[in-house]
Amino acid sequence: MDTLRLLASQGAEAGWLSESFSYAFMINALVAALLVGPLLGGLGTLVIAKRLAFFSEAVGHAALTGIAIGVLLGEPPENPIIGLFCFCMIFALLLHFVRNRTAVPYDTLVGVFLAVALAGGAALLMYVARKINIHMLENVLFGSILTITDFDLLVLGLSCLLIIVGLMFTFNRILLASISPDIAKVRGYNTHFYDYLFVMMITLVTIAAVKIVGAVLVGALLLIPGATARLMTKSMGSFVLLSSFLATLSCIIGTLLPMELKWSIPSGASIILVSASFFLIATVTRIVGRK
């Protein structure tokens, strides 16, 4: 990582990279974007296929409560990773389990869980922020690229590697289980296992991305690049690749742009806005093209 930062600052001095690249945190943020962007895009396609957009929103908001719990238990406010991971994972597993076992309509159920996550998270977080550090509130809600440490990148890299390897082996089966669970079961695939595995992957990626995009908007990053790519591709393979590309591009541009333009808007907001503008362009092109 140090060599990368050295190279970047040399490049900035030489003039072919902009000044923003001489900041260490910027390099860290860009590397984080490169690690998490492809996964968000790739998993986002499955989220769209499985109609789990609302579910991933709920998990994103659960991050609020998870962070608050972590800080309450004594973790450092800029890295409450254990509280965050444990709460979000248990939240996601329970939500999916209740969905499978009850007759409550899906959107109602997710709505309830999401409201509880948000209310609980807001209450705990406000309490914690007053006690400890009020500035952390903005970082948690909307992301902060300034606080990505080398250790964060290591954890991020490992989890992304884990998910990519997992996805290589299970993508087809997860997709088949969502399109036709019966066919999958007859083929001998344990559809419950693949469903839960997918839920866990989504949660892991959400946790990884919370630092960059913030808890409020992280669910959106699983959704918008995929929705954009869907308008532009003709087959599943290119759908996944384009979605990953768009997500990564949004993260990179969304991180760099406020620095370049010297705007002090949180990284999460700028990433989502960039992503949404891609979606807008694709939609308009589609509508105009149809005429």
Partner: peptide, 15 residues
């Protein structure tokens, strides 16, 4: 084609 390939192997559609 995607659908048939899904059923055929583990090899992910994007790879």
């Amino acid at each position: 084609l995607d659908f048939i390939l899904l059923n055929q192997s583990r090899s992910p559609l994007f790879f």
